[in-house]
Design a protein around this nucleic acid. Structure first.
Lengths: 152, 152
DNA sequence: AAAATTAAAGTCAAACAAAGTCAAAAAGGA
DNA sequence: TCCTTTTTGACTTTGTTTGACTTTAATTTT
């Protein structure tokens, strides 16, 4: 069996045990799994993405950690479909439509939808080259949606 | 848990107990926390800055002390000050400190702070080159805070 | 009153402790 | 074969902890 799959299994079992949230040190986990640390990064980057229903946070330095949180079990399927349909790029207009739709359906509060809209506005992304903004928007919105529906 | 976080918690509890103002001796606090004195300085320098809405006064020599006062400003004012204090670039740590501070002061709900944190995480900005992320963070957080301000 | 002593806090850089990045090499699969 | 995924490791960046040394203020001694 591939190392990647072992690591995935292990993290899944952590998530199960801690219902929905797993926190660990990258180096330590690499040690227990018998792989190099960057393999852990690879597994997370390829298997615990927003598309697959996970939110990842981390910190470097002393006392650093990686935390993976799974989306709530009963989270609206609408949301997951949405995250998956966003893909690599999301233009402003579509983003606006998506957000007002979520607010209308009461998946998000109006205030939350406004905050999200602000986060992906052209103004917020003015530091980025115009032709890279749509891909940033996609990444940001996906993470926002996952955060809104993460367990605990 | 990091020593830094323990110290932050302790100082926050002092602030709470004393109604917005905490005074202590650096060496004494270091003693009770079980760390070196300069660690206290580090915590103050990194977590209780003016941008965070704290005033720090101190005196050396015999009878010396450190006094931290929570600057009392209403939520909108605090938000505007923050927006203005954020320049062209904002690193993750500072961003995190800002957000947890706003939640601590109840300017934002914990949920909102989490959403904002997700919006400026490395994960969300993975489409951007690492060395451009801090300037994006600055732009995004400023817009988020302004949106929170106007939706108040 | 001046000098010496003592009691603080301040500074700063080095050591340490993580995670992140990236590209090359290896392994699989169509 | 050629393309994609996985594995590896060298190197970078970020954040924390520690300690030696400096500065400042109050107190004591001469």
């Amino acid at each position: 069996m591939r190392m990647t799959d072992n690591v995935v299994q292990y993290i899944l079992s952590l998530l199960e045990a801690e219902h929905g949230s797993a926190e660990f040190r990258r180096n330590e986990l690499a040690e227990t799994m018998g792989c190099v640390p960057s393999q852990i990064s690879y597994v997370i980057a390829s298997r615990f993405t927003p598309e697959q229903g996970y939110l990842v946070e981390s910190r470097r330095g002393g006392g650093g950690y990686i935390r993976i949180t799974r989306i709530k079990r009963d989270a609206p399927t609408l949301l997951m479909h949405l995250v998956n349909s966003i893909g690599e790029s999301l233009d402003r207009t579509t983003a606006g439509v998506v957000l007002s739709n979520l607010a209308e359906r009461k998946v998000l509060s109006v205030r939350e939808a406004k905050l999200m809209a602000a986060a992906i506005s052209d103004q917020a992304l003015s530091a980025a080259a115009p032709d890279t903004r749509d891909s940033l928007r996609a990444g940001i919105l996906k993470n926002l949606l996952m955060a809104a529906y993460s367990a605990t």
